[in-house]
Amino acid sequence: MAVIGLEQESQGVSDTVSSGRADESQPVPATPSHPAQLRALRIRRQRILKSVILLVVLAFLLVPLMAMMLFTVRQPLSGQWGVDAWKAIFTGSGDSLGADMSILWQGLGISLGLCVVTVVLVLALLVPVMVITYLRSPRLARVVEWVSTLPLTIPAIVLVVGLGPIYRWLSADVLSTNPIWLCFAYTILVMPFSYRALAVGMRSIDMRTLAEASRSLGASWPVLFVRVLLPNLWQSILSAAFIGIAVVMGEYTVASLLGRVNLQVALYQLGQSNSQISTAMALLALVFGVVLLVVLDLVADSIKRRRNK
């Protein structure tokens, strides 16, 4: 996501500038085999190659999405066209298609709840420790970085094998079998992504100067944290939250193997009986992800513009 905002000199401009330079009839003994026409040819060829590559990749990425869309409005067996699947989703009852939608709403509710709890938990765990280690102990900050990105190295399926006994104990003796407790596992899964989003924000502001300035003006630590650092970090906190939501909404492995229902498990189960409704719901979830990302991009843009002013 940080990729979008990368500052880079425009290659298009630089290409024209340099070909202009090659046009000048200076004696260039080192490049006799590279007259301006050949360079222009090369650039034209590059442009064709570029368009072909991008078109093929875009087609590969877009065809399944379009097929999903068509699949939801065309009955696969009878070949009839209709918007019954979408009606079922927006009216909330799948009676017209003979499908029981209750599991889907149950899963959706749980996934939304999990999003909230997981995001709160991961931010509450990460933000304070990242700030304090960044300000006071760079060595500890490296340990925090290593630990937070560790879940990338441990596949979710492996984590489930180890989490199984823990959750068995948790649900029998401490808490309940309520799927909301999956938030403990999800916090770990989300941590590397949220860590990266937060780290980008913390590196882009001069936290040490801010902290020293406010401390020498008499701010206490809580005041420094709430009134100085958080307002400067809210954009990266927002992006950490969004990526967390995206991960939680798409999670299947842990929930299904621990025997809990979330959105993805519900989608899979519904897909066994009515593939049209579940495909439509999957498409909606994907659109939701795209919207989240576009909003994030717009937020980042507006902040960058305000800073430049």
Binding site: V247, G250, Y252, L267, S275, A282, A285, L286, V290, D297
Partner: peptide, 20 residues
């Protein structure tokens, strides 16, 4: 933007997309 969404797009929904 498409890539950052689709890189996370796995699991059941992806399977549905290809089945469709």
């Amino acid at each position: 933007a498409l890539s950052s969404v689709l890189a996370q797009f796995g699991g059941v929904m992806l399977a549905f997309a290809f089945i469709a």
